[in-house]
């Protein structure tokens, strides 16, 4: 990662409407995204994530704040300058948004026509891109003849035609079935590695973030609640918004009531054979109850986390934390919400 961010969003605010009817869509957003990253922005619908991604290529003009692209504040740009910049920022959409009256090849040619590339050269380039996305045999097909996954592949080829530095993905896999989602994500990952393309992914699906993102920002109620590496945020979500997203309602988020300490244990590939909890109870002589557990056994290793409730006793807590330290298990005390 280089030091200067490819995309830097500073104190960005967006308000729709004025006066009493004004709706705040984005509230003081600050994000830096570096070259070669796959950066995820996750939030529930209505959180403001689509508005945020549209502010990056200024399809939506921020009310205040700046968007710095490769070191230059593009919010001050004229319409003409903006059109040039947009050729360096590709974008794909949930609805694919292909030109329905053009075949796959001509769809990919479209951005090349806009930059004035000669027809023959543009066709060559478009063919090469369709090969890259695995649709070399579909160049004559119209969007109506393609499946959802194929349409998104054409859209990706089209977005890449002008060699952009950044690819914005607005819920790009939300209209696709799980298998197709996988293959599109794999393609994005491949492009990221092969071309060094910076990818910004907007989604409401945890799986997408988990699978290909390096870092993630959680947006809730128009604000960024948490930013960090995917591992960090997913294993130790700090904010309520993050917990709500990572552990869907009913399964996990509950207000803690009553006495006692709540501990969250995180399993990051411990041996499935070792009876960790049972040993803990035996060694520390403490009756603990398991409030919640969500673990997976993958190849003999345990992944996941568990919430246990301890008796309200400092001595027991000291013993248990010592035991957990020795066993090398990450834990944290949970307050208010588990």
């Amino acid at each position: 990662m280089s030091k200067i961010p490819t995309v830097q969003i500073n104190n960005l605010n967006k308000t729709f409407g004025t006066g009493d009817g004004a709706v705040v869509a984005l509230d003081d957003i600050n994000i830096s995204i570096y070259q070669g990253e796959i950066f995820g922005i996750i939030g529930l619908s209505g959180a403001g994530k689509s508005t945020l991604v549209r502010c990056i290529n200024l399809l939506e003009k921020p009310t205040t704040g700046s968007v710095i692209f490769e070191g230059v504040d593009i919010t001050t740009y004229s319409d003409n300058q903006l059109r040039k910049v947009r050729q360096s920022i590709g974008m794909i959409f949930q609805g694919f948004n292909l030109l329905m009256q053009r075949n796959a090849l001509d769809n990919v040619c479209f951005p090349l026509e806009l930059v004035g590339m000669p027809r023959k050269e543009a066709k060559e380039r478009a063919r090469e891109l369709l090969r890259t996305v695995g649709l070399a045999d579909k160049e004559k097909a119209y969007p109506a003849q393609l499946s959802g996954g194929q349409k998104q592949r054409v859209a990706i080829a089209r977005a890449l035609a002008t060699n952009p530095k950044v690819l914005l993905c607005d819920e790009a896999t939300s209209a696709l079935d799980p298998t197709t989602t996988q293959s599109i994500l794999a393609l994005l990952k491949e492009l990221n590695q092969k071309l060094g393309l910076t990818v910004i992914i907007i989604t409401h699906e945890m799986k997408v973030i988990e699978q290909i993102c390096n870092r993630v920002a959680i947006i809730d109620n128009s604000r960024i609640e948490e930013i960090g590496t995917v591992d960090e945020v997913f294993r130790h979500p700090k904010t309520m918004a993050a917990k709500k997203l990572i552990f869907p309602k009913g399964e996990y988020v509950e207000k803690i009531s009553g006495d006692g300490k709540y501990l969250r244990l995180v399993f990051e590939g411990n041996s499935a054979d070792r009876p960790i909890i049972a040993n803990m109870v035996l060694k520390c002589g403490a009756p603990v109850s398991i409030v919640f557990a969500n673990t997976k056994n993958i190849d003999g290793q345990v992944f996941g986390h568990m919430i246990i409730k301890l008796p309200d006793d400092e001595e027991v807590f000291r013993k248990i934390s010592k035991y957990l330290d020795i066993e090398n298990i990450t834990y944290s005390e949970e307050k208010d919400y588990v």
Binding site: N57, L59, D79, L82, R83, K84, V85, R86, Q87, I89, G90, M91, F93, G95, N97, L98, L99, M100, F110, P111, E113, L114, V115, A155, R158, A159, T162, L168
Partner: peptide
């Protein structure tokens, strides 16, 4: 479709280009 127009704007199309090409 509004989305198609948005996509062409995101590729840097001018108003005239959107009218004539989209």
């Amino acid at each position: 479709d509004r989305g198609v127009i948005e996509a062409s704007l995101s590729m840097g199309a001018s108003t005239m280009e959107v009218v004539c090409k989209v």
